[in-house]
Simulated assay, not measured.
Amino acid sequence: MSRREHLSLDEFATAPRKQVAAGGVNLRPQDSATRSPEPPSSKPEVEVDMRLEARRALRRVKRERVKGESFFVNVSLDRQTKRRLKLASFNAETSMQAIIEAAIVKYLDEIGA
């Protein structure tokens, strides 16, 4: 296609739009004759209570999930310390993270924090 050629919107296949009924309920054209609008709920308070309870339950689940999360701390190390840590990690067959975590726990225990 050259720069001078332009496509029009008529050249693209598009899906037909849904018709909106007076009550705000989306109906497809073939369903509008066979389906009547649903009556409004007789118990809106129950629906509101169910929604609130669902929100509270979701918040509780999120809080429980956050309790078990681990948090990250960035540490700036000089080149020599990083090499020593990497070598100790290799020799002990453990991760550098595990060594740093153990060192932090030991330090905090020593100072009584």
Score class of each variant (00 low, 15 high):
66 V>I: 08
66 V>T: 15
66 V>W: 14
66 V>D: 15
66 V>Q: 12
67 K>G: 05
67 K>L: 14
67 K>A: 13
68 G>M: 03
68 G>K: 04
68 G>T: 06
69 E>W: 10
69 E>C: 07
69 E>G: 03
69 E>T: 10
70 S>Y: 04
70 S>C: 06
71 F>N: 11
71 F>M: 15
71 F>H: 13
71 F>W: 12
71 F>K: 10
71 F>R: 10
72 F>P: 01
72 F>Y: 14
72 F>N: 13
72 F>H: 11
72 F>A: 05
73 V>T: 08
73 V>S: 03
73 V>W: 04
74 N>T: 11
74 N>A: 08
74 N>E: 10
75 V>E: 04
75 V>S: 07
75 V>M: 14
76 S>L: 08
76 S>Y: 07
76 S>R: 02
76 S>G: 10
76 S>N: 10
77 L>Q: 14
77 L>R: 02
78 D>E: 13
78 D>T: 05
78 D>Q: 03
79 R>Y: 13
79 R>T: 11
79 R>K: 13
79 R>W: 13
80 Q>F: 12
80 Q>T: 15
80 Q>W: 10
80 Q>P: 01
81 T>K: 02
81 T>D: 13
81 T>G: 00
82 K>H: 14
82 K>D: 04
82 K>A: 05
82 K>T: 00
82 K>R: 14
82 K>Q: 02
83 R>M: 10
83 R>E: 03
85 L>Y: 00
86 K>R: 09
86 K>S: 15
86 K>Q: 11
86 K>I: 09
86 K>P: 01
86 K>M: 14
87 L>G: 03
87 L>Y: 06
87 L>W: 05
88 A>Q: 06
88 A>P: 08
88 A>T: 04
88 A>L: 09
89 S>Q: 00
89 S>P: 01
90 F>R: 07
90 F>M: 10
91 N>T: 07
92 A>P: 01
92 A>Q: 13
92 A>F: 03
93 E>P: 00
93 E>N: 14
93 E>C: 08
94 T>N: 02
94 T>H: 02
94 T>C: 14
95 S>A: 10
95 S>W: 03
95 S>D: 02
95 S>T: 12
96 M>D: 02
97 Q>W: 06
97 Q>M: 03
97 Q>N: 15
97 Q>E: 14
97 Q>A: 15
97 Q>S: 15
97 Q>H: 05
98 A>S: 13
98 A>P: 05
98 A>Y: 06
98 A>Q: 09
99 I>W: 02
99 I>E: 05
99 I>D: 02
99 I>P: 03
99 I>H: 01
101 E>P: 00
101 E>C: 02
101 E>L: 11
101 E>M: 08
102 A>F: 06
102 A>N: 07
103 A>I: 12
104 I>F: 11
104 I>G: 10
105 V>Q: 09
105 V>S: 10
